[in-house]
Amino acid sequence: MSESVDIRLTVNGQAVARRVAARQSLVDFLREELGLTGTRAGCEHGVCGACTLRLDGAIVRACLLFAAQLDGASIETIEGLSRSGEIADLQAAFHQHNALQCGFCTAGILVAAAALLRRGGVPSRAEIRDFLSGNYCRCTGYHAIIDAVEATCRARAGKSAP
């Protein structure tokens, strides 16, 4: 046991090896050690969802994990999801629907919405709201975000707007 820990992990497909302080959160590790500032440090106690990213394929809160825990893990951040093109349609829909204003929450919401999109099908607006209930936005009032996610779900399922 130690207050600093050696970790090797994959971040957006790239191998990373670092020695980290045991108390450093994953979001601080990404932002400060790797310069990946798309993942936001918001409330830092698991409430706001701004730090949402993928750990081994599942969305998690990066403020509620320590980097020291991630030896052997695979992380995908908004930078990785953007670069791969996986959410290009979702990002375009956010633009088209004015689904962001200040943008602080947007990365977390895109990553969370991408997890809903991966389930396939067209969820109801209530289901979209439920799925995104852990992501706070203080600007938009949410309606435009739901519009953008719904439009992307429909487009992927080959259905036009109602």
Partner: peptide, 10 residues
């Protein structure tokens, strides 16, 4: 202000 210092055992 962040988490306090602690030792970590995997």
């Amino acid at each position: 202000l962040k988490a306090p210092s602690f030792a970590y055992l995997r």
